[in-house]
Design a protein around this nucleic acid. Structure first.
Lengths: 123, 123
DNA sequence: TTTATATTGCAACAATTATTGAAATATCGG
DNA sequence: CCGATATTTCAATAATTGTTGCAATATAAA
């Protein structure tokens, strides 16, 4: 990932509503969520949500498809992985012994559940 | 990390110059870099860099201290770890078998080298 | 103490991004 | 086909963010 792409991807995430949408979709997994569910969950209007979903798509973070009358969206997991890799790349040239010992189990970034499992969306 | 903080942290990174600064500092490790070195490396004016460093500090991603005539800055590694954890949290409730198999060695986010090791900054 | 180097604060201006409502489009069930 | 539901497009407006030069501040070296 080049730094221009990375910057655009981060811009897409750097918005409260879009971040809420992203996390809801991460939690929802591959089957994603319908636009209406997302709008209600995040608490914004359909027009506004449509705009933000488009932004996430434009950044390659989300893909959408039609199912009946609804448009469902889900996270492009590979794009997320590439972004995280970019952020922490080139760090220290291997002097791990001097490092603060950061470790995140990014393998936990996986998908399965089809509905909101995020308390943020219980409303 | 709450979603407001996460959103602010992402906003801080979601800018080409700040992202370049961040990655240079990640590469530089705990001893950081002087503002002048960063301004030359990123290719922006001192005033502009000062503004962006302040933004990164305000987001808690960077800390700075004086060394003689220079102000040096380095990355707050814990803040980065918290951000990455927040982004991939709550994913799928453990149905890892359905997952795309994302894995990033975030343990590579460590620090040591004191100078630019990033080709982007060879100019 | 004078001079040079390094960085920040201020103020003005430029550019981008977010939100809203109303109308348009697409799908489904009857 | 017709009415209901779901989402998008458009256009107008509001709000935020980025950039620049100049002056001010702080440190260090001579």
């Amino acid at each position: 990932m080049d730094h221009v792409t990375a910057s655009r991807t981060l811009s897409a995430l750097a918005h409260e509503h879009r971040l809420a949408v992203f996390r809801a979709l991460i939690a929802a997994g591959p089957s994603g969520l319908a636009a209406g569910e997302l709008a209600r969950g995040v608490g914004i209007g359909a027009t506004n949500l449509s705009f933000h979903i488009k932004e996430l798509e434009r950044a390659g973070l989300v893909r959408s498809w039609r199912v009946g009358r609804s448009i469902r969206s889900s996270v492009e997991v590979d794009a997320v992985r590439r972004l995280l890799e970019f952020l922490i790349a080139d760090c220290c040239g291997g002097k791990a012994d001097l490092c603060g010992g950061i470790f995140v189990e990014v393998s936990s970034l996986c998908c399965g559940s089809a509905q909101f499992s995020n308390p943020e969306f219980s409303s």
